[in-house]
């Protein structure tokens, strides 16, 4: 079998790239933990999500080979994130504005639901 030929047909990435990516992921994990002990108020969640997004992108681009593979896969994957964003945003237009027009009449649905006022 022509192993050498076909092996080079794939994108065999250098070992150093994998270790660098893993190293950066480790460092970013350390940073996100360290930052969580400093209180920026609203900014904490933004910074944490930014770091998580960078980490996720590194995993997707290098470990999952999205950077080197057929770009159709990236389009498919990104479409899921677009729909996820749509789902969360549209639902929040409801959940964040309940009671704006009509007052909420809070009452337990079932008797056991009294527990929820604990």
């Amino acid at each position: 079998m022509e192993q050498q030929n076909t092996a080079t047909a794939h994108h065999v990435l250098p070992l150093s790239l994998y270790f660098t990516v893993a190293g950066v992921l480790f460092v970013l994990t350390g940073i996100t933990v360290a930052i969580s002990f400093v209180h920026f108020g609203e900014f904490n969640i933004i910074v944490a999500m930014l770091i998580a997004t960078v980490k996720a992108s590194l995993v997707a681009l290098y470990f999952m080979h999205l950077k080197y593979d057929n770009k159709l896969f990236m389009a498919v994957f990104l479409s899921s994130l677009i729909f996820l964003g749509l789902f969360l945003t549209l639902t929040m237009t409801d959940t964040m504005h309940r009671g704006d027009i009509d007052p909420i009449k809070e009452h337990p649905i079932k008797k056991e639901a009294v527990f929820y006022n604990k």
Partner: peptide, 23 residues
């Protein structure tokens, strides 16, 4: 299998700060 496994890792990357590192 690798793609699946990396997705499991990817989801944890978000779960970890959202659950353990609030504020």
């Amino acid at each position: 299998t690798g793609l699946y496994w990396h997705l499991v890792d990817l989801i944890w990357i978000f779960l970890f700060p959202l659950l353990y590192l609030i504020g």
